[in-house]
């Protein structure tokens, strides 16, 4: 436990020393909240079932945090540790190198929760954010989404060998996911054709689930989302375990 705490603390410092990861994970969602908040305000509207624009975009912004942490931070860090033979150096010690991966996993979840808390706080202070659901239920939906998307990131880290290729793939996945899944622009404003396509993006299901649970809807309404997210997780973990290499 002491080992884990030491590694975790250092990984956390490394995270915050890196401008890119800090900006994309924490800075960008805040900027989006302020941008859309200042354009649309937070007046209740029937389009969002009686909620305001900020009320629906805050849980959608959670999805952006999750996808940056899971599809960018996690696989790029793991692949760079492998490519630079840092993982190999840990194999020379009595520690099981999985601990590094686990520390990265926990770190990105906690950073995600931290980012979500900041968004909620800013939303409340500036726009009088409404939160009809329960904190506990929302946290649970957030965790399930992290588990699913992070597993997908781990899958990327298993099949891609170089930082170059994993960065390229991350960005290619990142942009359509944040713009077409309803994470930035609410799905209510997206054309039908794009909505059809967005069903193939894992993040769409994260956005739907988070927005629903946030709004206080019952889990029973999201069976499709839950099955897809759990399915992605099982698939990714099984394949990763089979093909992941330390070197």
């Amino acid at each position: 436990m002491e080992k884990f705490f030491k590694i975790f603390t250092i990984e956390m410092k490394l995270f915050f020393r890196d401008f890119t990861s800090t900006f994309f994970t924490l800075g960008m969602p805040i900027m989006l909240l302020l941008l859309f908040g200042s354009i649309y305000g937070n007046k209740p509207t029937p389009v969002f079932g009686g909620l305001g624009s900020v009320d629906v975009s805050v849980p959608a912004d959670f999805a952006i945090i999750i996808v940056v942490a899971g599809i960018m931070n996690l696989p790029i860090t793991i692949v760079s540790y492998r490519e630079k033979k840092i993982l190999k150096r840990f194999r020379c010690t009595p520690m099981n190198p999985s601990m590094i991966l686990f520390a990265q996993f926990v770190l990105n979840i906690l950073v995600g929760f931290f980012g979500a808390a900041v968004l909620i706080l800013l939303g409340k202070l500036i726009y009088g954010l409404r939160f009809p659901g329960s904190i506990f239920q929302t946290a649970l939906a957030f965790l399930l989404s992290c588990a699913s998307i992070f597993s997908l990131g781990f899958f990327l880290a298993s099949i891609l060998k170089t930082v170059r290729s994993v960065s390229a793939v991350s960005f290619i996945l990142y942009f359509p996911m944040i713009f077409l899944s309803g994470a930035t622009l609410p799905s209510e404003f997206l054309p039908k054709g794009i909505l059809k396509f967005s069903q193939f993006l894992p993040l769409t299901h994260v956005v739907n689930l988070l927005r629903g649970i946030w709004a206080g809807k019952s889990w029973g309404l999201f069976n499709k989302e839950i099955i897809i997210l759990v399915g992605i997780m099982i698939f990714s973990v099984l394949i990763s375990i089979k093909i992941f290499r330390w070197e």
Binding site: I10, K13, Y81, K84, K85, I86, K88, R89
Partner: peptide, 27 residues
């Protein structure tokens, strides 16, 4: 103790932190 032919550490880890972290891995 192993010195690998090729290895590295995270770019922004401090020497002190590397020593502390690796120390914590051994009994």
């Amino acid at each position: 103790g192993i010195q690998l032919q090729e290895s590295s550490l995270p770019e922004r880890i401090k020497v002190r932190e590397a020593m502390e972290m690796f120390s914590s891995l051994y009994p």
